[in-house]
Amino acid sequence: MSGESVILFHSSNYAMWAADALKKAKIGHKLVPVPRELSSDCGYCVRFDTLSAGQVSALMEKENIEFDRIEQI
């Protein structure tokens, strides 16, 4: 599946944690504002290539980083 996805967290603190883990794992990503249509949160989420979705969720599980959901955008 091509395109981009975002991984949403309950808190920007977790988005930071996730971005740090993704950086270490060398998985391309960017911290971006949370799309209003997806969440009411004030902070950020992490955008990545949808092709990496499996790797991203596996990494979150491995590092015990709780997340809300992954959405294709």
């Binding site: 930071m16 911290l31 902070g43 950020y44």
Partner: peptide, 17 residues
């Protein structure tokens, strides 16, 4: 930090993290 999605807020959040 953590209160907006703009780049300066992201940088602030990274420093706190």
């Amino acid at each position: 930090p953590g209160r907006a999605g703009h780049s300066q807020s992201v940088k602030a959040g990274e420093i706190v993290f």
